[in-house]
Design a binder for these strands. Structure first.
Length: 423
RNA sequence: GGGGGGAUGCCGGAGCGGACGAACGGGGCGGUCUUGAAAACCGCUGGCCGUCGCGAGGCGGCUCGAGGGUUCGAAUCCCUCUCCCCCCGCCA
């Protein structure tokens, strides 16, 4: 959510920045400012009446019985006028809230303008795609042959875009999770297993509602939403709280199952487990001082790269373009890993600086001498297990169909599971 | 699922229609005293919004779990919702 006060004072920079996402947003800002003007106008009138009412009420309590009746009669007038104005104010208020809630975070100047992921800008490439002396298989062929992946049965039980992970893939998942936690906790991240069913406030606060409503599962009887990422419950953790500056930056690393409807992705990535409705993910989340988030953003990215490098994956870092940014992000880096099965780089992680956008919606502030301010929030994928399994299987496959597990995971695996050889 | 009790400021806890933004205690901050500290004493100490002012700040509104209602006036009365606690049932 934007800061309405500063937007009033100087709308142009925000309009310019938002236009880089979508030129139509400039007009939305104008509509918002108009609604805000009306709201404040009514607000002044209502507050004046209320002040009169408050003064009058005190007078009533002090008045003699004789004066009382007349005073009450004149206050009744005030009360009636308030009854007329208040619904108008409520309406104006609602208009402002809706318009404000729909505006996305203005992108940072360094974000490239573009419409789709095709327009993302490559920041750097790290590692070299492996040269196989044979035709590399994709993760579906590898996984099924190794007996660690069963998609057909998942389709029978749950429908498309689901999978069973079996045997060594399960061990591998625990190893990946431990590897990430062991790397991140010394950097100050506190491990968290959060709720994955959340209320509307958390979904709104993180910016997934209203924009991404179509991609969120909702429970029918309890009005709870299934989180598509633990970013949601991790951001909601300090909802409505005022944090002390000494406690920042505050770093959490969540582990949770994630649920996504993938509406609008029909026909896209239908093979395998690249895009599924349910997967497990280790997610970093930071709360920072308002002036420290850009530094933290680079830090989170460096953590992601450390993990990818440790696992021996060739990857590139891309600066995600305006059209591909989520509503709450001011800037986002994706790490795209090389997938030999697809012969291209695909998104493995993403890392967003949401600046004060989520914090303002969530009411998470930091106590400062002049005035309390919204903190900045950031999130970054440490390991999306499903996609990481794809990358590991495809990059570390050998001619005989076996897969070598990277050394960094060996401490977490029994010796016989350090090379996947299948049944 | 059935029955009962609650939700007040950073924390504890009073108030149960009229000077209540809220007693009292604790904590925190500042000061006096002290070589320093403790103790004692004194003072300060919620959030949000609007408005005026270049500014320090002034004025006003809202806020006693949330939203409605009654009333000239609600922390206090009524309704709905949310959450917490206790008992019974069920249960990983």
């Amino acid at each position: 959510m934007l800061d309405l006060k500063s937007l009033r004072e100087d709308p142009e920079p925000v309009k310019t920045a938002l236009s880089r996402r979508d030129p139509a947003l400039s007009a939305d800002v104008d509509r918002l400012l108009e609604a805000d003007r009306r709201r404040r106008e009514l607000n002044v009138q209502v507050e004046e009446l209320r002040a009169e009412q408050n003064r009058g009420s005190k007078a009533v309590s002090r008045a003699t019985p004789g004066e009382r009746e007349q005073l009450i009669a004149s206050l009744k007038e005030v009360s009636i006028r308030l009854d007329e104005l208040q619904p108008q104010l409520a309406e104006a208020d609602e208009a402002v809230t809706v318009l404000l809630g729909r505006l996305p975070n203005p992108p940072h100047d360094s974000v490239p303008v573009g419409e789709t992921d095709e327009d993302n800008v490559v920041v750097r490439e790290v590692g070299v795609p492996p040269a196989f002396g044979f035709e590399p298989k994709d993760h579906v062929d590898l996984g099924q042959a190794l007996g660690v992946l069963d998609i057909d049965r998942a389709t029978k039980v749950a429908g498309s875009r689901f999978a069973y992970l079996l045997g060594d893939a399960v061990w591998l998942q625990w190893a990946l999770v431990r590897y990430c936690l062991d790397m991140l906790t010394p950097k100050g991240f506190v491990p968290v297993i959060p709720p994955v069913l959340v209320r509307e406030e958390a979904m709104f606060g993180t910016g997934f509602l209203p924009t991404d409503e179509a991609n969120i599962y909702v429970t029918r009887d309890d009005e709870l939403y299934l989180a598509g990422t633990s970013e949601v419950p991790l951001a909601g953790f300090h909802q409505g709280e005022i944090l002390e500056p000494g406690g920042l930056p505050l770093r959490l690393v969540g582990y949770s199952t994630c649920f996504r409807r993938e509406a609008g992705a029909y026909g896209k990535d239908t093979r395998g487990i690249f895009r599924v409705h349910q997967f497990d993910k280790v997610e970093m989340f930071s709360y920072t001082m308002p002036d420290a988030s850009w530094e933290e953003h680079e830090f989170l990215l460096s953590c992601e790269e450390e993990i990818a490098r440790g696992l021996g994956l060739p990857y590139r870092v891309v600066n995600v373009c305006t059209g591909d940014l989520g509503a709450s992000a001011a800037k986002k880096y994706d790490i795209e890993g090389w997938l030999p099965g697809q012969q291209r780089y695909r998104e493995l992680t993403s890392c967003s600086n949401c600046t004060d956008y989520q914090a303002r919606r969530l009411g998470t502030r930091v106590r400062l001498p002049e005035a309390n301010q919204p903190v900045h929030t950031l999130n970054g994928t440490a390991c999306a297990v499903g996609r990481m399994l794809i990358a590991l299987l495809e990059n570390h496959q050998q001619e005989d169909g076996s897969v070598r597990v990277p050394d960094v995971l060996h401490p977490y695996l029994p010796e016989e599971r350090r090379v996947l050889t299948g049944p």
